[in-house]
Design a protein around this nucleic acid. Structure first.
Length: 648
RNA sequence: GCCGGGUUAGCUCAGCUGGUAGAGCGCUUCUCUUGUAAAGAAGAGGUCGUCGGUUCGAAUCCGACACUCGGCUCCA
């Protein structure tokens, strides 16, 4: 009998076990339920299989299936099962990589003769996967040296490339390669860990087929990627599928049609939008609010045309760096005009139209401008990624020593605005100088990056740093938010620019009577009005807060003989500045109520005999609450309080 | 741009292996006059995305294109 060894557990306790005890056996000793939930273990910080014998003195934590780490293991193992199924069903298929991802996994394949998967193949593959699960094949770890590894995957060029590239994350580091074998025929290069056997899996669903470039490189072969999702239980899988259905119910394209907000007719061309009256009302309210707040925050409006001659875009550098994303030029009277993809060059011209003194700075110019970008056809995505959209662009020109204060105020302004629209959770990314090409001196970069960092720290906004993720012209902050169902969206961006002031030779006269170069900050808050509108629409699932609702109140008369009173009430509300409409008694009241609910109106008023007699209304809120006999004055006051209360 | 889906009435969709189109909602008209999530009846509405091909015959099969959805790449 071997000497006992001692291991420590996450709760700080120590436990004595016989030498050679595996992580799985340890879990079983601790408890049945833990053993059932165990999929892997963490030993001294390393994620390992349950079958690994524990070293003496190790710190051990069991990885359970419902944890994020445990789900990663389940998903990774499920990806292997899918690979085995595909290799069984498609002889000659090559397999590349198959990692777990958020909520699921994928695996990339190359089929012989350039064949592709269709949706109907997913069912066959899934059926074969269920057989593999039923067979309860073990995952057996194997260690090979590099040459053995190359031999093992002799007819799998992608695996060989991984081994030759020595990629520790794929199980090929330090001259050793690890692989997991399920059967005599199926073995996959992998770092692990995996569940003990395929019988441990089963709550999965294959979702879609997509093309994906090998190693994410456009110049390399396009592989066939299959996405799937996998969970620890049927309940968790069902909950996930329900979340997907909820996201689909909130899809802004669906709601845009149902609520008659906007459309993108084919006749317009890809990525172009027409706003219907109700959507246009929401957009107008968003923009009005934004303009008012900008004015309060010391911005000045600017307007600029949709077109400019090529020379402007040469000076700005857009034709050098951005031409692919611009619409092709139009020729007129021997000049070439381009539709604008951004407003910055125009605002620079406004700055440059006068000699500027330091006393004028910061100069903040604001414009909601329609811009056009030739987005590649495959990236278009409803209002979220359109070719013609409206950017709430502003450009701030300031002296270098104003930068910290200005950017701090800017971050605060951005958060205040986003909160006013009902968002509560924010995160930011600070992107620093790229490795390769970058304009501006090291000192400039250092100072600007520091200004951004200080601003983030002062506003207590949590942020991570994307080293080298900045644009070549300056560092930036991106603000992300989470919506009502937890999705993360990138929205606002604050970018320092050393490039344009230099290209356009911008100057100001300082207190020292010498000429200096201003710093320029680009800032988009909504980013794109269209995109922000879409995010809002999905966030609220179409039920806009009262201050943004295109129709705030609908007045319904019980019978036609209450119509005159209903009109009086509607007129009164209209004169108080509310958006109100009505519906006569052509249909039963229940049907009209239902219609109003489906239109997601915030308030529905019902007026009948009692109300005509007493000068009251019946008030219906959006949640289904009903209150009879409310005086019109009281309702007006309530509505007014609600509308002002939900804004800044 | 690349890979895979898709496009049938205003909307959501059905239409088996080829034989010139259906439903529900919506819309119009009439009847009903209603107190809180669908009253009844009648009617109108479609060159089946576009163009070309195969076929005696195409919504259906093939090709190109447009648009669209999901990915990849891109997003100075």
């Amino acid at each position: 009998m071997a000497e006992p060894i001692t291991v420590s557990l996450p709760d700080g306790s120590a436990r004595e076990v016989p030498a050679g005890t595996t992580a799985g056996e340890l879990a079983a000793q601790i408890g049945r339920r833990l053993a059932q939930a165990a999929v892997a273990a963490t030993v001294d910080g390393q994620r390992v299989d349950l079958s690994v014998p524990l070293p003496s003195g190790a710190t051990v934590a069991v990885v359970t299936d419902g944890s994020e780490a445990g789900r990663e293991v389940l998903r990774h193992s499920t990806a292997h099962v899918m690979a085995q199924a595909v290799l069984d069903l498609f002889p000659g298929a090559k397999f590349a990589i198959g990692p777990p991802i958020e909520d699921g996994f994928y695996y990339d394949f190359e089929l012989p003769g350039g064949a592709t998967f269709g949706d109907e193949d997913l069912e066959r593959i899934e059926a074969r996967m269920r057989e593999i699960v039923a067979e309860d094949q073990p995952f057996v770890r194997e260690e090979h040296d590099r040459d053995q590894g190359l031999e093992l995957f002799a007819d799998q060029p992608y695996k060989r490339e991984i081994i030759e590239g020595v990629d520790p994350s794929e199980g090929a580091g330090g001259g050793q390669v690890s692989a997991y074998r399920n059967t005599e025929r199926f073995v996959d290069l992998c770092r692990g860990p995996h569940v003990p056997s395929t019988g441990r899996l089963g709550h999965f669903k294959l979702q879609k087929v997509a093309g994906a470039y090998w190693r994410g490189d456009e110049r390399r072969p396009m592989l066939q990627r299959i996405y799937g999702t996998a969970w620890e239980s049927k309940a968790a899988l069902d909950a996930h599928l329900e979340r997907l259905r909820e996201a689909e119910r909130r899809n802004h394209r669906r709601l845009g049609t149902e609520l008659d907000l906007f459309s993108m007719p084919e006749e317009l061309g890809a990525g172009l939008v027409v706003w219907h009256p109700k959507g246009a009302m929401v957009r107008k309210l968003m923009e009005d609010f934004s303009r008012t707040e900008h004015e309060r925050a010391g911005y000045q409006y600017a307007f600029s045309p949709h077109l400019a001659r090529s020379g402007l875009w040469e000076t700005s550098g857009h034709l050098d760096f951005y031409a692919e994303s611009m619409y092709p030029p139009m020729e007129m009277e021997g000049a070439r005009y381009y539709a604008k993809p951004m407003s910055c060059p125009f605002h620079v011209l406004i700055y440059r139209s006068n000699q500027r003194s330091y006393r004028e700075l910061p100069l903040r110019l604001f414009e909601i401008a329609t811009v056009y970008r030739n987005e590649r056809s495959g990236v278009l995505n409803g209002l979220l990624r359109a070719r013609g959209f409206n950017q709430d662009d502003s450009h701030i020109f300031c002296t270098p020593d104003q930068a910290v204060e200005e950017i701090t105020a800017l971050v605060e302004f951005v958060l205040r605005m986003l909160r006013a629209f009902g968002f509560e959770e924010f995160e930011a990314t600070l992107s620093t100088r790229p490795e390769e090409k970058a304009v501006g001196s090291d000192d400039d970069w250092e100072a600007a990056t520091e200004a951004l960092r200080v601003a983030l720290e002062r506003t207590a906004l949590s942020f991570d740093v994307d080293e080298g993720g900045g644009a070549f012209y300056g560092p930036k902050i991106d603000v992300h938010l989470r919506d009502a169902i937890g999705r993360r969206w990138q929205l606002s961006t604050i970018q320092v620019d050393f490039q344009l002031p230099q290209r356009f030779g911008l100057e100001y006269v300082g207190a020292d009577n010498a000429r200096h170069r201003p710093i320029m900050v680009h800032r988009a808050l909504f980013g794109s009005v269209e995109r922000f509108f879409a995010i809002l629409l999905e966030h609220y699932a179409g039920a806009f807060p009262t201050w943004l609702a295109p129709v705030q109140v609908r007045v319904l008369s019980v019978r036609d003989d209450h119509a005159a009173y209903a009109t009086d009430v509607a007129t009164r509300l209209g004169s108080e500045g509310f958006r109100v409409d009505g519906a006569g008694a052509d249909e039963p009241l229940g049907a009209r109520i239902r219609r109003a609910k489906l239109e997601k109106l915030p308030w529905v008023l019902v007026v009948g005999d009692d109300d005509v007699a007493a000068g009251t209304v019946g008030v219906n809120g959006r949640q289904g609450e009903v209150e009879r006999g409310v005086s019109v004055d009281a309702f007006v006051a309530r509505l007014a309080a609600e509308v002002t209360g939900t804004r800044i």
